[in-house]
Computed example of a mutant assay.
Amino acid sequence: MLVVLVGVMILHLLDLILLIISTALNAWLVDGDLSTDLWYGCTSKNGGYHCKQSISEDWLQAVQALMVLSVLFCLLSFVFFLCQLFTLVKGGRFYFTAIFQILASLFVMSGAIIYTVMNNGPESSSYGHAYVLAWVAFPLSLVSGLIYIVLRKKE
């Protein structure tokens, strides 16, 4: 049982780290020297790195909010898991933790879908690694939430 708990905790922490990196990192869209994320658009010229604030479109603000909510819900889910680990009765399931983790996965999925549909970057641009990390974090958090539904507390 200890191995399962450690595995679930590692999966959850990995998901949390991926969500934080994908929300904060400046590589959602890359086009040569230009890289943009949810917060800034940066160019690298002559060894310097110049950033300006990202556009203030409604869809981008929605993506920002959804990604921040996914990080918060994933963090709260981990805190609830630790609390339930010590207070839950024997044989109880981690439903409260699972709900928050599944909500985090839905938030990150919604944010990535909105970004994919609404982004009108240049033709030569490609999605960066932070965007890919957001898509990788979605199934990890969904699987983690489903594991919490199945997981029972044992002595």
Score class of each variant (00 low, 15 high):
Q53L: 10
H129I: 13
Y148M: 06
F73Y: 13
W28R: 02
T116N: 05
L18C: 06
L38S: 02
L16C: 14
Y40S: 11
A27Q: 03
T116F: 10
L69F: 15
W135M: 11
K45H: 11
L151A: 02
L2Q: 12
Q101E: 05
F73K: 07
S77L: 05
V4I: 14
H12R: 15
T43W: 12
S125N: 08
V108G: 00
A98H: 10
V143H: 06
M118G: 04
L106Y: 00
I114R: 06
N26T: 01
W39D: 03
L16R: 08
L38I: 00
V79M: 01
K90Y: 03
I114K: 06
L29F: 10
F138E: 01
L133P: 03
N120C: 10
V8Y: 10
L34S: 06
M67Q: 13
Y49V: 01
F94G: 00
W39P: 04
H12L: 14
A104Q: 04
H129Y: 12
L140V: 03
A134P: 10
V4M: 13
L82Y: 11
E57T: 08
V71M: 06
F80S: 10
N120A: 09
V150D: 08
I147L: 12
S105A: 04
S126I: 15
I113Y: 06
A134E: 13
L5I: 11
C42F: 13
L69S: 14
L142Y: 11
V63C: 00
L25N: 10
S110T: 02
Y127V: 12
A98F: 14
S77R: 02
L29W: 11
I114T: 12
D58N: 04
H129R: 12
I20P: 00
L19F: 04
I99N: 02
R152N: 13
G128Q: 08
E155M: 09
M9E: 07
M1E: 11
T87D: 03
A137F: 08
A62W: 05
T43M: 14
N119S: 06
L19S: 00
L60Y: 01
M118C: 02
G32Y: 01
K52C: 12
S56D: 15
G111E: 07
C51A: 00
C42V: 11
H129M: 10
E155N: 12
G41Q: 15
D15R: 14
I102M: 02
L85R: 06
C83Y: 15
